[in-house]
Amino acid sequence: MKRLTFLPALAGLVFILYIVLPVVSIFLNINWSRFGTTVRLPVVLQALQLSGLTTLVATAVTILLGTPLAYFLARRSFPGREVLDTLLDLPLVLPPAVAGVALLMAFGRRGLMGSLLAGWGISLPFTTVAVILAQVFVGAPFFLKTARNGFAAVDTSLEAISLTLGKTPRQTFFRVTLPLAFPALFNGAIMTWARALGEFGATIMFAGNMPGITQTLPLAIYMAMDSNLEAALVMAALMVLVSFAVLLAVKKVAPGGDGHPFP
């Protein structure tokens, strides 16, 4: 009988090692005495700044535009809703390269939308805006999906009761629906942010690679691999730390998913 519990335990241990080992290796290979100087390299600082800025903007844009849509999808049924739902989920499964090509075809200078914008003298590729567009494209579905489920889980009779208590639909949304769906929205926003932070393929294809303008952390790490491994490791370590801290914080702050958002 002992073997029966031993083997699964071993399997679990192997799996944990498999995840932990590469992450730890990053930290073991860093020359900590030079850490301070490496972090202050322009290429590192610029990438940190740019990633911080673009991911925050991308997440904010997603929340602003995505929240009404998620609410709409959760509350209304209309012909073709399934199709629309699926379309909006699509970036979840598309390889980043497909996202990059798609964005170029749409917002590139000769793209559907891009050629229109070009008429007004606006060109998106190779700009920080393009970085944000790429991040929103690949990250937004996470928010939309969780927010939609969060809104759908709010009992509509609570909203109806709020209306009969003299609150307008707007007041009802902000005082009942939003607070009740908040844990889901928060989780969705964090997932979108994390996905935006890691975005690489669509960015390098659509926004290019320019330090300070479009070179986000993942791109900087990729480029530094060939020229300055030290810097690549330091940036990788920073990403690991930030991601870990955020994921842990989310678990502590918003228990969400367990069905009791208000203990």
């Binding site: 590139g108 000769r110 190779f126 290019g208 690679n209 320019m210």
Partner: peptide
């Protein structure tokens, strides 16, 4: 006037051929 530093020469060709640069 440089807007992007590509990772290899083929990417430079592609960006120009697509008209992005």
């Amino acid at each position: 006037r440089v807007v992007s530093q590509e990772t290899n020469v083929r990417q430079v060709v592609a960006k120009v051929a697509l008209g992005e640069a």
